[in-house]
Amino acid sequence: MRSKFSKKVQDILSADSKTVFITGDLGYNALEAIQATAKERFINAGVAEQNMVGVAAGLAYKDFETFVYSIAPFAVYRCLEQIKIDVCIHNLPVYIVGNGGGYGYGIMGATHHAIEDIGCLSTLPNITCWVPAFSEDVDYCLDQIITQKKPAYLRLGLGKSYQVKFDIAAINHIVKADIPEITIIALGPVVHNAIEAIGENNNIDLFTILSVPIIEMNEKLLKSISQARKVIVIEEHVERGGLGEHILSLLAKRNIHLLKFLSLHAKGYPSKLYGSQAFHQKESGLDAENIKKEISQLLLS
């Protein structure tokens, strides 16, 4: 996703002289082209994440839309107060970009993981969190972000491409059931594990949701849920403040009753051991094998 992101941001910076890009001293082998394009509108703010968000707010006050880039945990937690006060309360066009959301940085360890980012940010005023699932979603999210011109967070990960041309929206129907018995909703690239788990099953609907909070509920998704009444939400994020809770709250408000709801989410470090992103997904039951098992059980229940 990072190369898609880099290419698209390069285009944005070329087209609009009132856009600035700030990095917190990261982006080797990824941001060089942006730097070359943006020249003095590319700022390496050093290893000083809180300051760079304040700087972005100052730039935005002077009518510059500003991207602020780091790896997800540093971009979110280190400068949460700056995001809340300097950016969100003033509703400024500052776009926080966190690379490697979830367990994306795998073996780098807990300091480099961001499994509570959506929970932290989605409670703040005016901000929308964007989580691409497929690599082509990055362009869609960026188009939404620069159109809305308000605080945004973009969580990047390792997404695969769509296999067929796809008309991307904020909610996407990825796998279509003949008659749905389960509705699966995935946040981010963990959707690829769900696709693998579904395999040849023709009774499972799979959707991705690219924005939290959900901007507009999709009728196809509501119809699927109403038919299946069994929902699995899959996210590389802790349960608290994640997409699952968000969905449940929306369904409750619409008086939609479920037979079963299953949240598959990041569980932190259950074995207290570390490994690749796939290792941590497995530890949390987010791997294709476990999703498949959960689907089988849910179909029988």
Binding site: I43, N51, V53, G54, V55, A57, L59, I85
Partner: peptide, 13 residues
């Protein structure tokens, strides 16, 4: 500690 970073952004702009 918020004013100086914001000021830097305005100065840079």
């Amino acid at each position: 500690g918020h004013g100086l970073p914001i000021g830097c952004g305005i100065a840079y702009a």
